[in-house]
Design a protein around this nucleic acid. Structure first.
Length: 273
DNA sequence: GCATTACCCTGAAAGC
DNA sequence: TGCTTTCAGGGTAATG
């Protein structure tokens, strides 16, 4: 389940491997992802050169020359694999992008919640999913002051608020659980009840949890591997996520699990208020 | 307009 | 052992 740190890890690897390469051809499986891959996708990529690789929330945005954007989202189970030699595509391989140096990128996604898209530069902000994205949690504008100002106006539960990509772009279930634990805040707290001090604590926790995860090159449970097939190391640092029944590292009470908005939430009732 | 719920999908795990 | 059911969750449409 790739979230912002996993996508950032992939984007950094992409910069090292495909920057400056020319796309020779694109092969598609024909199966639809979350949305059907545009009919013009292969034609649009062919012959262009990779100029820049960016990340926006959980989206990878590849700038090609002549200028056009190639967008990718890995959904829950998506993987990007880089090959320098011939390989056998998996039954869940949806796209293979071949470069002129004979290397290639393979897009796999068994659950097909991912997305592949292409758009003109002028139309990037017209794509609802991109246009609607909220603040980057490791960006300059994201801090306690900003978080407090927006959180005050919401009646949502903290967990749902933080998972909403229109508020904060890039957070998913793992890092929301970890950040709320780090900040000592209960996932069911209503946003508007947070004090200024608590909002500042939460913003610091979000930045801290994500920064470490980026340094550790992501969290790997079952799905996430990077371009080279390497797993991340951040799972060793998780304090509550997938730790139901374990003693809380802070107070010793058992870590609990509950359902919140059709997602599992892991938390400690002893120290999250 | 905002908050909540249901749905998409398929592999893995659990249950029988 | 083998079949069936349940669970996982990001994003979004539908519903309240």
């Amino acid at each position: 389940m790739p979230e912002m740190p996993e996508i950032e890890t992939i984007a950094r690897k992409l910069r090292k491997t495909v920057l400056g390469k020319r796309i020779k051809g694109v092969r598609l499986s024909g199966k639809p992802l979350r949305r059907p891959i545009p009919g013009s996708f292969a034609r649009s990529l062919r012959g262009r050169t990779v100029r820049r690789v960016c990340r926006r929330g959980k989206y990878i945005v590849v700038e090609l020359q002549p200028k056009i954007y190639w967008l990718m989202h890995l959904g829950m189970s998506g993987r990007l694999l880089y090959h320098t030699n011939a390989f056998r595509p998996d039954p869940h391989t949806h796209a293979v992008i071949r470069f002129s140096d004979a290397s290639s990128l393979e897009f796999r996604d068994p659950r097909r919640f991912g997305l592949l898209d292409v758009c003109e530069v002028s139309r990037l902000q017209e794509i609802p999913a991109i246009r609607g994205l909220g603040e980057e949690p490791l960006g300059n504008r994201f801090d306690g002051r900003w978080l407090h100002s927006v959180i005050l106006n919401s009646r949502q539960e903290l967990k749902s608020f933080l998972l909403d990509q229109r508020r904060v772009a890039g957070l998913g279930n793992i890092y929301v659980c970890e950040a709320l634990f780090e900040a000592g805040l209960h996932p069911e707290r209503r946003c508007y009840t947070l004090s200024e001090e608590e909002a500042f604590r939460l913003a610091r926790a979000i930045r801290s949890v994500l920064s470490r995860a980026v340094r550790m090159r992501g969290t790997s449970f079952s799905d996430f591997i990077d371009l080279d097939g390497n797993t991340g190391k951040n799972q060793m640092y998780l304090k509550v996520f997938q730790r139901e029944g374990d003693a809380c590292v802070r107070c010793g009470n058992p870590v609990l699990r509950m359902r919140q908005g059709n997602r599992s939430t892991f938390f400690c009732a002893g120290c999250q208020r």
